[in-house]
Amino acid sequence: MSESEKLLVVKDLATTFATAGGLVPAVGGVSFDLERNETLGIVGESGSGKTVLSRTIMGLQPRANVTVTGSARVNGFEVVGASEKEKRQIWGTEVAMVFQDPMTSLNPVMRIGKQIDEALRVRMGMNRAAARARAIELLELVGIPSPAQRYDAYPGQLSGGMRQRVVIATALACSPKLLMADEPTTGLDVTIQAQILNLLDELKDRLKMSVILVTHDLGVVATRTSRIVVMYAGRIVETGSTREVFYHHRMPYTRALLESSPKVSNHPHTRLATIPGRPPNLLKLAQGCSFAPRCAYATDRCHQERPELQPAAEPGHSFACWNPLPTTRGVAAP
């Protein structure tokens, strides 16, 4: 598939914050792409830059002292360097975002139906009646029972799960081709989490859109994505098909992350593998591999020189490591 047909192409994207303490490379040069009708997972711990990356792709730059370089093309539209006015052309119609906290991303003093209406009337030029009909349709689409009555409800009258459904409906109002979901289920209960993830899956197929799931939870991406990107300290350290990354990962960080998450199948008092230390301070990033200080396999080279992404055996799978784990596929390590 040629690059122009891809829905999202990100090349060397870097987001740097200028702070009182110095420059913070929140995203330090990231490249990946996304096919149409695909679900991609972006996984990382706090400080990995996953949230900043998703917002940079959206073109949301919070403050004046942020520098963005590289390129992010959403359906052919270059987000980096675009003006607010230009970006407004793609917000909602090409790309929309679902935020983590449904309480703060909905206006608490506005009826939920009106919040969906707003986008429809302003962006799609619908009249009042048509917008209302469409909003109720959207509420029904995201599985809100008796949508016509709920149209007049305020966000505070809905439960967390219902609010997140409303947020999704708002995001879908102008039929975006890419839905960016930033920790969409964090803070929701287990059973509600499953409902929302199933809903996103279903909507993706029904509306023929692509979804990017940004999360810290490997459980969220395991069964919901076709490919995943693992981030650490603002960079991609491993990427590939979900199964490949889970079962044939080469980067020690990916393995450590997988092994340190508790599993339901573990017996009580199972000792968990841990990663020593904590995620790095972005103000004091070492010149070599950012994970080297916590890595059991680190050598001098890891501390000196930063590894770039290199292809693994399976097409599409690559990792950034000088001393990768032995492949489980019987291919010699480079």
Partner: peptide, 15 residues
């Protein structure tokens, strides 16, 4: 809704 999300960014930066 975007504006009130800006502050979140600062929290996600590990400094």
């Amino acid at each position: 809704n975007v504006a009130n999300e800006f502050s979140l960014l600062e929290e996600t930066l590990l400094i």
